[in-house]
Each structure stands twice: as C-alpha cells, then as structure tokens.
Nucleic acid binder design. Structure first.
Lengths: 189, 189
DNA sequence: ACGACCATGTAAGCGGTTACATGATTAT
DNA sequence: ATAATCATGTAACCGCTTACATGGTCGT
C-alpha cells in the first residue's frame, strides 16, 4: 500500500504535470519532504503504474522528468481523498519544549529573543502565503470561492495558513508583552 | 549528543519527578511520542547520567520508576533552552493534501464530512486545553501572569493551543459555509 | 465479560534527515 | 569569487510507529 507522502504527490499531480523538483516545491508548504525522499518514491510510483514520465531536455537548465497521473493513479486518489484523515495531525515545535522549561533560565533576554525570532519566522511565512494568495486570485478571478473551482482547495489552504500564521504572530506579541512588563519592573528597582 | 525528544523529557523533569508513563502523558500535548520511544530513551539518559530514578513499589498499581534530573541533566538543559529553536517546525495534516485534490471528487457530501470531523476533533482538543487551563489557574492563582512563575511556560503554551484550536475551528466553519451555499444552489435547480 | 487505566519493556520496519555526488546558469 | 537556482539521484543513519508481551485493578 501507498504511504501518505505518495498520496501527497498524487494530489499535486491531480492538478497538472510536474517534475520531481517542482513537486517538492509545491508540496513543501503543506507536507514537508526532502528531495531525497521524493525522487525514489516517484520512481516507485512510476514502476507501480500510478504515474508516468517523459524526459524533457533543456539547454539552459538540467534535463528533467515530467510526471503525470495515470488512470490507476487517478483511481487510487479518488478512493483515498474522501477517506477520513489521520488524527491527530502531527506538530512538533521546539519552542513548546523550551517554553516549558523557561522558568529555569535566569537570562530572560535570551528567552525573549526566542519569541522574537519565532514571530519573525511567522511574519516571513505570512508574506509568502500572502503572495501565494495573490497568485491564486489572479489565476481564478471571482470563480475562486466556489467548491467546484479547481483552485478552491488551494485557496482555502492558503487562507488557513494565513490565519494560523496571524494567530501565532499575535501569540508571540502577547508573550512578549509580559517580558516588557517584567523589564519595566526591573527598571523601577 | 541528545536529540530533541531527550531534551523534551528533561524539560518535563525540570518541573518535578515523574515516571516514564507520566512523562509520556505530559509530553503528548506538546511533542507527540509513544511509550515505546520514551522508555528506552529514559534508560539511555539514565545510563549517561542526565537523569536518575528510584523504584516505587505499589500494591494497587504496577510498580514504577520515578525519574529526576541530575546536575548534569540540569546543566545540559539550561544550555539548550536559550539556543535558537529549529525552524520551521514540522506540521503534517492529511487534510491539507486531501483539500488540494478535492476538486476531483464529485461526492461533495463526503468532502463536507471531512471538514466536519476535523472541526469536531479541534473542539475536543479545545475542551481538553480549557480544562488544563483551569487546573493551572488553580495551582498558581494570580501569580501566573509573571514570567518568573514556574507555571508561566505551561500557561502560555495552553493559551497558544487554545487560540490555535479556535482558529482551526473557525476555518472549518468558514469552509463549511461554502458547502452550504453550494447545497442551496443545487436545491434551486 | 470487557474495556480502560496503570506500567514497563522489546523488535521490526517504515518514515524522514543529513550527507555524498555532479554540474551548468545566473545574479550579486 | 560566491551563492542561489535548477535538477536528479544514492547511502547511512536516526526518528517514529506498530505490533508483540505481561499483568493487576477498577468501572460498567
């Protein structure tokens, strides 16, 4: 049986034909995977008949393999997609652990820095997803907010990423406000 | 060198002494790990001198090993905690993949179900974290909102989990509203 | 009776990261 | 010069999940 990453690749290929490199870039925002995991998997899916590829020779860039869904691949996808998703989804953020033990650290400024860089990372992500949203809007226009649109899924995912990033940024700001109050107390003494 | 899960265990032990079973339960909400990963790691940390344990014999329940931080463990922790966290944090939610390919699925009611059960799971999590918050509030009282408090880290993490769960629930509701509009359009025809 | 909770462990196997390997083009 | 982008692959290793194994108590 296929694993989740395989279905992730098939999902991307449901919307067009792409090289392994392209698939990696498209998949990254929604399911982290390195090229060293993707290339061998694509070869396996190819052998098993879920995808097929053609070689594209390029003069300015390296040659590439462009993959497409086969009928078998499409069939496997439309059976998998409506099945219940694995719960709970996995999330692993080191800051959760570091926050838990922060009471041991006397250097509060170092801890403050952790939350500031965390906020900065989320602001970067937010900018990225904002740009993605503009792209999708230009592609689809006003038809986008209909579940029949081919881009609807991509649209709602980008929207989720944006609201989650905003929530994280707000949370970091809220935490940092405690550090500010703490610093003011120190000054008065 | 120690891996992240090891530091996760040390973080939990920074706040008290716990059995492997307790550590698993405490760690779960912030860093998913099964007992089969935790027990051997604790033994390794024990051998390497980062933690130590005493055997507690119980008559009503199975005997257990209660672990505590050693000086070496505490030292390793206070060096690790202020170091920058690994970026980006990993998140893997199958619904992200399924949404991407939902345009292929003609059975929109099945897709609707996916978002409804997703919302239900987040509501469950929300209830769990609400209860945790009440616990922490009772333990710490009003002192809680000070970065010097031992419970401050736990407090802000629970707060984050609550706001993120709320954002996810709202997003699911927003997505479901499109399904409602779609269903109404169908009816008119 | 049956399942859930407490409690600890081992073993097999899949999933995922890091490092090794190559190499042209373009931008700073 | 140096780094980034495009492009594909392999190998070693660590992280993580699933399954196997045991066994008492408590609630329904």
């Amino acid at each position: 049986m296929l694993n989740t990453l395989s279905f992730g690749l098939l999902c991307m290929l449901s919307r067009g034909s792409f090289s392994g490199y392209d698939l990696m870039l498209k998949l990254q925002p929604f399911w982290q995977a390195k090229h060293s995991q993707i290339y061998p998997l694509l070869a396996k899916l190819d052998q098993a008949g879920y995808v097929e590829h053609i070689k594209i020779e390029q003069s300015d860039k390296p040659d590439k393999k462009v993959y497409s869904l086969t009928g078998k691949g499409r069939q496997a996808l439309i059976e998998w997609v409506p099945e219940p998703a694995a719960e709970p989804p996995t999330t692993r953020d080191e800051i959760n652990l570091k926050a838990y033990a922060m009471w041991m650290i006397s250097d509060k400024d170092a801890m403050r820095q952790l939350f500031e860089t965390k906020a900065a990372h989320h602001r970067e992500k937010l900018e990225y997803y904002d740009r993605l949203l503009e792209q999708v809007k230009q592609e689809s226009g006003d038809n986008l907010e209909s579940i029949d649109d081919k881009n609807f899924g991509r649209y709602i995912l980008i929207r989720k990423a944006i609201t989650l990033a905003n929530t994280q940024i707000e949370w970091c700001g809220w935490v940092l406000s405690f550090f500010d109050r703490h610093a003011q107390k120190e000054e008065r003494q």
